[in-house]
Nucleic acid binder design. Structure first.
Length: 437
RNA sequence: GGUGAGAUGGCUGAGUGGUCGAAAGCAGCGGUUUGCUAAACCGCCGUCCUGCCUAAAGCGGGACCGAGGGUUCGAAUCCCUCUCUCACCGCCA
């Protein structure tokens, strides 16, 4: 949520900044300001009337305690109370109206975010393992896709996935299932020990208030899975960002509490309506996938530094797995709703012959904190909104794609990176039976 | 699912209709004193909105005691609904 004061004072600046996103929010901003002005007018009237009423009530109290008569004050007070009632209803409606409008306005892109309307205008800020990419590309025709590999080895069972749940679901089998489990463990260990995040394991079902807190609702309700249960209002987590950031909703933290770093594993559930084709083949776009997510709650003055560190923490995953990647700074038009600045990290997948997004690291500034009333008392004693950040560290399904495709051997087996061996029972080869050996 | 008890400031917790924005303690901030860390004593110490003021300070107004509604001239306090917490029972991993 944006700061209404800022919008009142620099409405045009805000509109202009938002126009860098792919749509115009000018009319929404205007509507918000209009309702806000009406609301404030109603509030002004209310305050005057209430001041009168409070005065009368006090006077009545005084007279009664002295045993005096106060009948004429009673009727006067009643008249005022009646007009208060009317204005109060109006004011409540206006307030809610303003809030509802505010919830649909995205965050303002940071100054360092480049202009652009689509993914083509994102800038590559880092490339790692370029020589390996070149080498892989030179013999690209030898590389099978993860779908071919996975099915041949019987470690990815897409048929079984759709048998149980429909398209967009997969069953990992044998070494596939073990690899998935190993990666979760590996990622959590890396971030909790080396990067000093605190491990949390949150609920996967999340209520509306939390979903509003991080910005998934109300605007993106159609992308979310609800449980379908009548009388309940729970959604399946689209990312651990939601439960983990909301850990501190409605809290006033102490200055010394910050920064807070969390790492969490959760499955992620997304409808992904309307996507199909090459983009979605195999494991690349699933309705359910596993992810280890990193969440930070920090002081405002440090949040951009923290974003860089967060990004490095995610990049480290790919470096340790020796998977070539590149990092993009997203342009204003390609950023998510709540982000002020966002990096995407993409891993090279030779079977696909392209880069796949495995992480998205964003600074939300105080956008989420405002929605969820997440504040801290700074060293001068002033209450201020925290800044929140999160980044994937990383998404697992696409990591599996890259691992299978990069590490495939001519004989059809797969030799996984050595660093995973402790998590795979000391083994690293997926043999032709789909077992570890 | 049943029964009962609760929800008050950063935390603990008192407060059953009028001077309560709210006792007390802890934490925090400022100060005094004993040779340091520490202890003792004194003072300050909720949030949001808003008016006067260039601003700060200060003074004034309004709101907030889980949320929403009601009763009343007047509600933290009484009534209703909801949400959550705790205890016991039932059920289940």
């Amino acid at each position: 949520m944006l700061d209404i004061k800022q919008v009142r004072e620099q409405g045009n600046g805000v509109k202009q900044a938002l126009s860098r996103r792919n749509a115009s929010y000018s009319s929404l901003i205007e509507e918000w300001l209009g309702v806000d002005a009406k609301w404030r007018e109603a509030l002004g009237k209310l305050e005057t009337l209430k001041a009168q009423k409070n005065k009368l009530a006090k006077e009545i109290g005084n007279r009664k305690s002295r045993g005096e008569n106060a009948d004429e004050l009673f009727s006067e007070s009643k008249t005022i109370a009646a007009s208060i009632d009317a204005i109060e209803n109006e004011s409540r409606e206006l307030e809610n109206d303003a809030y509802q409008k505010a919830l649909f306005i995205p965050n303002i892109p940071h100054d360092s975010v480049p202009n652009g309307s689509s993914a083509e205008q994102n800038t590559v800020v880092k490339e790692w393992g370029t020589s390996k990419v070149a080498e892989l590309k030179s013999q690209i025709s030898n590389f099978k896709t993860h779908v071919e590999l996975g099915e041949k080895l019987q470690i990815l069972d897409f048929e079984a996935g759709s048998k149980i749940s429909g398209s967009g679901f997969v069953v990992y089998r044998k070494a596939g299932a073990k690899l998935e489990r190993a990666l979760i463990q590996f990622l959590l260990d890396l971030h909790t020990s080396e990067h000093r995040y605190q491990e949390v394991s949150p609920p996967f079902l999340i209520h509306r208030k939390s979903m509003i807190g991080t910005g998934q609702l109300p605007k993106f309700e159609e992308d979310m899975y609800g449980t379908g249960q009548t009388g309940e209002d729970l959604f399946l987590a689209p990312t651990a960002e939601v439960p983990v950031t909301n850990l501190h909703r409605d809290e006033l933290l102490r200055d010394a509490d910050l920064p807070i770093y969390y790492a969490a594993y959760t499955p992620c559930f997304r409808k992904e309506a309307g996507s199909s084709g090459r983009e979605t083949r195999g494991l690349i776009r699933m309705h359910q996938f596993d992810k280890v997510e990193l969440v930070k709650i920090v002081k405002p003055e440090t949040s951009y530094e923290e974003l860089e560190k967060l990004r490095e923490n995610a990049e480290r995953v790919l470096e340790l797995l020796e998977l070539p990647y590149r990092t993009l700074l997203l342009c204003a038009g390609d950023m998510g709703f709540g982000a002020a600045k966002c990096y995407d990290i993409e891993v090279w997948a030779p079977g696909e012959n392209r880069y796949l997004e495995v992480s998205s690291c964003s600074n939300f500034e105080d956008f989420q904190a405002r929605r969820m009333a997440l504040r801290f008392k700074d060293s001068t004693g002033k209450n201020r909104f925290c800044h929140t950040l999160n980044g994937s560290g990383t998404a697992l399904a696409r990591l599996v794609v890259a691992l299978l495709e990069v590490y495939q051997q001519k004989d059809g087996t797969i030799i996984l990176p050595e660093i995973l061996m402790p998590y795979l029972g000391g083994k690293r080869t997926i043999n032709l039976n789909g077992e570890l050996s």
